[in-house]
Design a protein around this nucleic acid. Structure first.
Length: 465
RNA sequence: GGAGCCAUCGCCAAGUGGUAAGGCCGCAGCCUGCAAAGCUGCUAUCCCCGGUUCAAAUCCGGGUGGCUCCUCCA
């Protein structure tokens, strides 16, 4: 396995801290709203990573946090009149069910900030005690970036005070310093008691604290891989790394991976630009598995320009996989072809080279179709092929459905019966060579959005998209 | 103002020094009553200029264009 480390900016051979074990921490969402396509892409990227590492034989432990306390959440609590627990629980459930819809494997650990307050408080207290952090009169606690010689090594950001756009707080020693703890201001703030003040954690500290709480690591690092969106590199990961380094005496992660953005019409998707696209809205229009294939079809580090035309191309590619699955069903899978397996794993082992991986899948489909054209009853081939498709599911997370149902997504039983009835009439017409009638029925089905294909074994139909 | 990423066939997209994967679309053919599906074949010298090298899409310098980060953000 080779991984592109976005801190070292080079592709490196992956060597885990502990043999055959991999620890991954991914920055999860702040739960004050529904998940958008960007969350989906991030989830999907690291899902691919976890699946690949598992297929390579590693035992993977993945954590993804939920930030369930912060300014935006408090704002929403005030606006909605709902309790914070009610609100965050709702959005956590929404997030998980949306991710389920695109077949993202659940993380092994899903820590919440509010359930990690002990770890957070203890880390902040330690940073104060060691002189890496200071408390100001308001009760806020800041990290003193000047005390960390390695501050800046993660993002390579040489931030100059004169051009910094960060607001200066009068008592902050440097504009680069950041909040570890924010004291309560208003009476209706949501606060937690701590030794330094009643307040709530800053944005970055929870990740450091959770990693310390849930992972052992070794003398040098706490975890193997730290992931997140490209926008988190600075300041979030820079600050997180600094906190962890100073509090624990070791680096937080050996490898850093950052996924690229989802763009709409060539621009970053964001709330402020008003072009954000909720995953749940996309799921109302497009099937989750097709969305998954599409969102994963481009390398995770590249920017992703979301558009329907490309999504339909992805659907066509996935259709081919399912047509092959139809051809080999029903049968019992044996073992995947070793040539196919090694080609697929080798592609994914190269920093998740999905383009090559998908072309390996396409090659397998084409070769198998050709062989089946020549020998339609090759049982051994069929069984191996089904195992190949199961491997595709295991590593890429697509192709898991019943192939006949796949082509009938969204078709009601009533319509199915109607289609079957029409096909019966058409079969009769064909039998007596009444092609005018059979073609008329085919046209009728096309109008209904149904594509049909004749074969020696009978006529099959598919829903056109 | 500072920092970084990217630019490959009509479209999407691999390839990071050794002579351009794959998909979609298109064209031709096999198959088919005709189609569809499936299969076969065909289609690029890599934004521009200069440099390094026996050899560059791949490295270096300079342009141009697009995007991102420096503010909550996946």
């Amino acid at each position: 396995m080779h991984i592109y480390d976005s801190v070292k900016k080079e592709k490196l051979p992956f060597e885990p801290l502990i043999d055959d074990e991999v620890s991954i921490y991914v920055c999860g969402p702040t739960v004050y709203d529904d998940a958008h396509l960007g969350h989906a892409r991030s989830s999907l990227s690291f899902d691919l990573l976890a699946r690949t590492l598992k297929a390579l034989g590693y035992s993977v432990t993945m954590a993804k946090n939920f930030t369930d306390i912060d300014d935006k959440i408090i704002k929403k609590v005030r606006e909605s009149g709902r309790s914070i627990e009610e609100l965050t629980t709702y959005y956590i459930d929404r997030y998980l069910s949306d991710m389920d819809a695109i077949n993202v494997l659940r993380s092994d650990i899903e820590p919440k900030a509010t359930e990690s307050m002990d770890a957070i408080e203890s880390m902040i207290a330690r940073l104060i005690k060691l002189g890496f952090a200071y408390r100001i009169d308001s009760g806020d606690v800041y990290f003193d970036t000047s005390r960390d010689a390695k501050y800046g090594d993660i993002s390579h950001m040489v931030s100059d005070d004169t051009v910094s756009r960060i607001e200066h707080t009068s008592q902050k020693r440097s504009s680069k310093d950041f909040a570890l703890w924010k004291a309560c201001n208003d009476s209706d703030d949501i606060c937690f008691d701590a030794a330094f003040s009643s307040g709530r954690p800053g944005w970055h500290i929870e990740c450091s604290a959770m990693i310390e709480k849930h992972f052992e690591g070794n003398d040098e690092y706490s975890i193997d891989i730290h992931g997140g969106g490209a926008d988190l590199l600075f300041p979030h990961h820079e600050n997180e790394a600094a906190q962890s380094r100073c509090a624990t005496g070791r680096e937080v992660a050996k490898y850093w991976m950052h996924n690229g953005f989802v763009q709409i019409d060539g621009e970053k998707m964001s709330k402020s630009l008003g072009n954000s696209f909720f995953l749940k809205d996309a799921l109302e229009v497009y099937d989750g598995e097709i969305l998954r294939y599409y969102l994963n079809s481009i390398h995770y580090r590249n920017d992703f320009n979301f558009n329907e035309e490309d999504l339909l191309v992805s659907k066509r590619r996935l259709d081919k996989l399912y047509r092959l699955k139809k051809r080999v069903s029903p049968t019992k899978p044996t073992n995947p072809s070793s040539r196919f397996k090694s080609a697929l794993l080798s592609a994914m082992s190269d920093d998740l080279n999905i383009s090559v991986a998908l072309s390996v899948v396409d090659d397998m489909i084409m070769e198998t179709n050709e062989k089946l054209d020549n020998n339609p009853k090759d049982k051994v081939l069929k069984r191996e092929t089904l195992a190949n498709i199961e491997l595709v599911d295991q590593i890429l997370g697509v192709g898991y459905r019943d192939p006949f149902e796949y082509f009938q997504i969204g078709i009601e039983q009533e319509l199915k019966d109607e289609i079957e009835a029409l096909l019966l009439v058409r079969a009769e017409a064909k039998k007596v060579k009444d092609f005018a009638t059979s073609d008329r029925i085919r046209d009728q089905l096309t109008t209904m959005g149904i594509s049909i294909m004749d074969s020696p074994e009978g006529t099959q139909w598919e829903k056109l998209l």
